[in-house]
Design a protein around this nucleic acid. Sequence first.
RNA 1: GGGUGGUUAGCUCAGUUGGUCUAGAGCGUCUGGUUUACACCCAGAAGGUCACAGGUUCGACUCCUGUACCACCCACCA
Length: 905
Amino acid sequence: MLPKAYDPQATEDRIYKLWEESGAFRADARSAKEAFAVSMPPPNATGQLHLGHAVMLALEDIFVRFARMRGKEALWLPGTDHAAIATESVVIKKIQKEEKVKDPRTHYGREKLVEKIAEFVEKSQGTIRSQIRKMGSSCDWSRERYTLDPALSRCVNEVFVKMYKDGLIYRGNRVVNWDTALQTTISDDEIEYVDREGTLWTFEYLSAKQTGGEPLFVATSRPETKLGDNAIIVHPDDERYQHLVGRHFEVEWPGGVTRHVTVIADHTVDRAFGTGAIGCTPFHSKVDFEIWQRHKEEILSEPLQVIGEDGLMTEHAGDFAGLSIEHCREHFVAGLQAQGRLLPEEKYVQPLSISYRSKQPVEPIPKLQWFIDVNKKVVSWKGKMMSLKEVMQEVVRCGDVRIIPDRFAKTYFQWIDNLQDWCISRQIWWGHRVPVWYRGEGDGERETYVGVAPPAGAGWEQDPDTLDTWFSSGLWTWSTLIDPVLAGDFSLSLEDLLRQSSDFRKFHPTSVMETGYDILFFWVARMILMSTYATGQIPFKTVYLHGLVRTREGKKMSKSDPQTCIDPLEIIAECGADALRMSMIVGQSPGNDFRLYKEKIGGYRNFVNKLWNASRFVLLECEKAEVDPHTITKLPDLKELSLADRAVLHASEVLIEEATQGLEEYRLSEVGERLYSFVWDFFCDWYLELSKGNANHAVLVHVLRRILKLLHPYCPFVTEELWIAFKPVNAELLITEAWPTVKEERKDPDAYSDFSLVIAVISAIRSLRADHGVEPGAKVSAIIHADCVKLLTSQRAHIERIARLSDLTVDAKAKKHAHAASTFLTGGIEVHVPLEGLIDLEKERTKLTKELKDVERFLTSIQAKLTNKKFLENAPEEVVALEKEKLTNAQEKAAKLQARLKTFA
RNA sequence: GGGUGGUUAGCUCAGUUGGUCUAGAGCGUCUGGUUUACACCCAGAAGGUCACAGGUUCGACUCCUGUACCACCCACCA
């Protein structure tokens, strides 16, 4: 016999092992079955499982288990990401702390440090693997991939070379986002904007003497960058400055440097902000850089870089060279003050760009970097030449890639509209090194080689930079499907590899990409870009975006605040993975954040236990009757079944229908809730209750098996464990069982509605009893007036037992009752419970009066409708019929209430 | 500045093309229960003018417009 309470700790690991050893997770590329593939978004190789992962794993596992049970060849490919910047900075910090090495980069050098990081990854990779298993993830571990696997690295190089040859990848000297803390460039998408209380300084840029009229004032929040100015920008229509446009000036700055600036006119200037004139600092502002590019002809002098990569002022800052930005600013402002050029400063809210990785300010600086051109029309897609941007737009617009919820398509388009060339090179060491080699001296004249493999010959030096981690993860859906053995053969081209890899042929494009909406741009968009370009295929047909997990108070969960942070592993140990999964799926709708808290999870732990005990009950009933549940294979003749049996069969057929359709349409929350309610509110509370003492074992076992199957994607562990007790003799694991299909002949809506009537009657009696404080053990009699005498009489035994009646009288017509009876009206049925001595007549009268009032109010509203000509003309017939029925029922009820009230008068 | 989402019982949320919604669930609250599946339980009850204001419609929680508040995303106001 099963233990009294379900013990997930004693079950889950054992069941997982069973699955893994059975080979149920493994997909077969040669199978004739329809493919269903999901690429698992790879967690950081050094990561720890958090709730974000848990949600992703739960959702994807449901998709995959559902597909597998429906007879599809289901592949869920797991893997990990090398997470370039994140991993490198973690290891560097670790070395600094543990080995007391101040600068691990210079201390160890490139080769040794990369080795140390690899070692660290190797060691910690096992953690996340075992944690993914803890969630019950049915992924194919035989196909596990890592972004730095040789085959995947080769794909990275192949794509880089292909893009380079197509002119999509270029090297350019441009203003990039420099993370001064991490000492690397980052892409535009890795910047966050925060509002900060800033100061706006207004100062005399040009004196009255210089302009020959009014002095020219300029406002800035970054005075120190003015040292790198080569122009002043005004609006072309700004009359205040018309006469200055095109003139050149020498400006002396604090710090002892002099700059040559030109006044130019550009329509991007906002005349209303500050003084309407701004200093142009091309090397420390992307906007200014672009303006400079537009006006290069007019501007005589070159811009200067005054802030270095180290975050200190360069030699161009004169006396301020070597100072930090903040110090330089203080000195510079003081200098302006001393020269009498400064107006009173103002406070204002300034948008500050910070790095999403280091949370430190991002400095725009000029740097020679690698970029992907998103506007060049060299990509062939559906017979047309398009830019990467256009292909990305096209596949979503025409529906090849569907985004759930679809409103995110709009967000996606908006992002693409603003997309600029993607800076892909990083100055860190951990990752895929840019596959470019140089030979010779000097920057410009050096010989350059771009190739998948290093060039032959001596003297070649590889580009020191590595690629943005999203470059490689952008390939994830297909690079993971490339045959690793074939990938070792460099005589094959990328096209050959794709063509010859059976996994790629079978499983790409993948079916669903499920991930958080927060990486729609970072990752989802990049996969679309990379896949369409490199393989000519979309990466996935559907994108399912889940929301972020929040605390009960609606705050983001953060590791730094353990009080609000729920650790999935702790929960699994406490409540089980099934409960955690349910609690994250039910009440969660795609694209919306949701709150998770202990009580909610506790509720689903209770549910899992409820299912466990319902199964125990069925088992006990079988035992009592000496029926072995395993031997039950057939249902008895439907005509011989009791009302409850026919009703539960009907309900379970409807449940199959709804669950199947709901899952097909990705309405996981709704289906989860439906299953929950079926199991608890219908199956346990009514069907099992009625089965006591007169169980039909075949039906019990049959319905329970249906439940286990339907619930398996949500609660794989407990259902698999219970399946062992209930499966038919020849059956194997539940994970590979066939999903139930609807049998129309088992439906019996009449039985179901009759059964519902019985339920309503019992509820009515229970309610009357409780209202009057009848002792729970005491038996009372009841009198029912209803048209369905036959039905109720046939169910008399059930009603008497469950409602605890001494005797039950069923009549078609109302008779006179003793005053001392309480009445309940439900669906045309009149239920009276005579309660001699227990009834407070006044209370009973009040209750009936109140009910009568409600009915009359309702009646008025329906009558208004039914006498409304327009309603009768416009509303569909069935609605009118329905309203008429409601009217009749309400009238009947009102009449009965009135009659009943009269007996109290 | 542009965009998106939210606002439904004390709390967390459902509510699929407008009409079985006289608006549901879970938790919490209250009343009462150790009848051998389950106290991780059972029975019963209380609790909502569906943010606000208009509009469309025979009919609106559901569609449209506007307002308020909250949240998020994007953007070159130095």
